[in-house]
Structures are given as C-alpha cells and as structure tokens.
Computed example of a mutant assay.
Amino acid sequence: MKAMILAAGKGERLRPLTLHTPKPLVRAGGVPLIEYHLRALKAAGFSEVVINHAWLGQQIEDYLGDGHQFGLRIRYSPEGEPLETGGGIFRALPLLGDEPFLVVNGDIWTDCDFTALKAPIHGLAHLVLVDNPLHHLSGDFALVGGEVRDESAPARLTYSGIAVLHPKLFAGCSDGAFKLAPLLRDAMAKGQVTGEHFTGRWVDVGTHERLAEVEQIVAVKP
C-alpha cells in the first residue's frame, strides 16, 4: 500500500512562521511536522509516499529529497495553485495506482500507529475518527457499528485527517479544485464508508496554541 501526505496548505493561521516556511516544515520539538509522519509511515512498513504541495513547495522537495534518508521513496505532486483536498488527491492518483492508499493530513500531529490501516477496506473509504477537540465540538460524522454516517446519532466524532481511500471514490471527478467531504458523504449514503475511533494523541496543528501543545507533548514523550 502507498501513502499520501497532504502538504499543500498555506498555514495562514500560523503566520509569521509560514510566511517563509511551508506549514509541513514548521518544527515542533525541533522536528518538521511532516517528518513525524514519515517516521511513522516507515515504522508501519510503508515504503512509497506521495506528497502534494503548493505554497513554497520547492522547500519541501529540497528538504525531503527522494526520501532515502527516511528509508522511503518519495514522489511529489506539485499543484501551483492549491486544489483543495479532493482535487489534490485526484491530481496525484496516477502516482498512487489502482489500489487503496493511506492519506494523512500534513498539518496534524499524532501517535497513531498506521500499521493496522494497511488491512483491506470494505467499501470506498475507511476513516479514522477522534474525540471532538475544543475547537470543533460539533464533530463531523457518526460511527455506528463500524460504519461512518453523516448523521448526529448517537454521537458525532471528528475526522482526524487520516483515511484509507479507494481510487474508485473519485470516479467521475475531473482535474481542478474540489473538496473531499462531498465525495465521502455520497459514499456514506451508499453504505460504502467504514471507520474506527482512535483514542490516542492527536492535534490539529492549525494555530500557534496547538503548535505549542505539540511542543509540550514531544518534550515529555519517551
């Protein structure tokens, strides 16, 4: 299975850090955020990674290179203008192949073990959901008997930015900017999305306060 890290975001809420540094290269505990993902993917047995980029993307390529220092093979999907989550993944499909692939948002920090996500999926997508953070208490989706649904009962959880997607999820799409969520909701309506509830450490690193939270976690992490 291949993996894709979404790294095209501009990180406007992390300015001035992101004025001259792409968000995935912002450091926490002295380590670029994207490097935590690469280490975790390697530990989970992944060998091929695709990274999309837009804002200051060449810096990402210059820093990570072909991935050999991480024991990985990295390929890039440059966008120029951001294509949003759905459009970015769709543009990268030729690099990802015809089988399900892991997708990880580049602007999260987590200690999630990606190993179990290499298991075959049943349907078009498998989402990792987390408890609702303070900045998103309403959540995104419900998890009912292993199936993810776009409803409020019994309780909504937050999409973590970690998923396994089948390329068929993008059938009928065309090149350009579009969001992933509508595709997921369409698949949910057809019973084609499964999920799991991750209860480990997870931070959406969207602000300076949440970046400081990650700093504190990695400072004490064994």
Rank of each mutant, 00 (worst) to 15 (best):
G11P: 02
L93V: 01
T158V: 08
C112Y: 14
N105R: 03
E79N: 03
I162E: 02
W55K: 08
F141A: 01
H20I: 10
V128Q: 09
A92Y: 08
D113Q: 05
L96H: 09
Q69E: 09
D66M: 06
C173G: 03
E61V: 14
E215Y: 05
H126K: 10
R156E: 03
E213R: 13
G97Y: 06
W55E: 11
L72T: 07
Y159Q: 09
A3H: 07
L129T: 07
A142P: 00
L117K: 04
R73W: 08
Q58S: 12
R75Y: 08
I89H: 10
N132W: 14
T194K: 15
H20T: 12
D150S: 04
Q69P: 01
V104F: 06
A187Y: 02
N132F: 13
G145M: 04
S160W: 10
E61Q: 13
A28F: 05
L96T: 05
P78A: 07
C112T: 01
H208N: 07
G86N: 11
T115H: 15
L211I: 10
V50T: 12
G9Y: 14
V130F: 05
L33R: 10
F90W: 14
T199I: 07
F141I: 02
R210W: 13
H135M: 07
A181W: 14
G67P: 03
R73I: 09
L25C: 06
I60K: 04
E99S: 13
H208P: 03
V218H: 07
H68P: 01
E84S: 13
E215R: 11
G87Y: 04
G65P: 02
E147H: 10
L183V: 01
H135D: 10
H126L: 11
A177L: 10
G200F: 00
L95G: 01
W202F: 12
